[in-house]
Amino acid sequence: MKNRVPLEALKSLLQEQAPVRARRDLGVLPGSEPPHPLRAGQIIEVLGEGRWGWCMRLLRERESSRAAWLSLDQALLFPMALAQEGIALSRILFLERVPALQGLDVLLPVLRSRLFEVVMMDQGLLPRMRQDAQIRKVQLTAEEAGAAVLVLSQFPTNSYGVQVRVETGPGREFRLEKVKGGTGE
């Protein structure tokens, strides 16, 4: 007679929210020749010295949507610079000092909340390439949530989808070249 379940508690537990229309197309990667589309569910690895400047430019172009920034230690993006670029600071949610092991536990709920179109995070937070199943899970959740994940990393790990290297040219414009088509193509 163990674990008898009272009936009305069960009913309210099973009630789920109504599904929301997923966004598919999220515009174009800035500075990419030919223009590379940004689609929901893509995990893009951003390399090169100009990756932060490039991210800021991406945020400026996506004026209306919200973004999340997950970082291992202190938030590296300087809010004053973001404000000077004209980005509304109330649109960006910062998560600092995310423990490396819990990277996934934080990323999934953020995606599931369907609030953010772009999630940027440090490379250290995503698990190593061996757990493909988890990468696959992130892609599916992102696709379902209509968001894209950008991983900023120092060295290429060629384990996720699209890889992009951003170099800052002399006149400070960004040169973006695709390194390798990832599994998320």
Partner: peptide
């Protein structure tokens, strides 16, 4: 609320203001 529980302390979830 969920992230507040997840991360070590609640201040790590924030938005910025100049």
């Amino acid at each position: 609320s969920f992230l507040g529980l997840k991360l070590k302390n609640r201040e790590d979830v924030f938005q910025a203001e100049t």
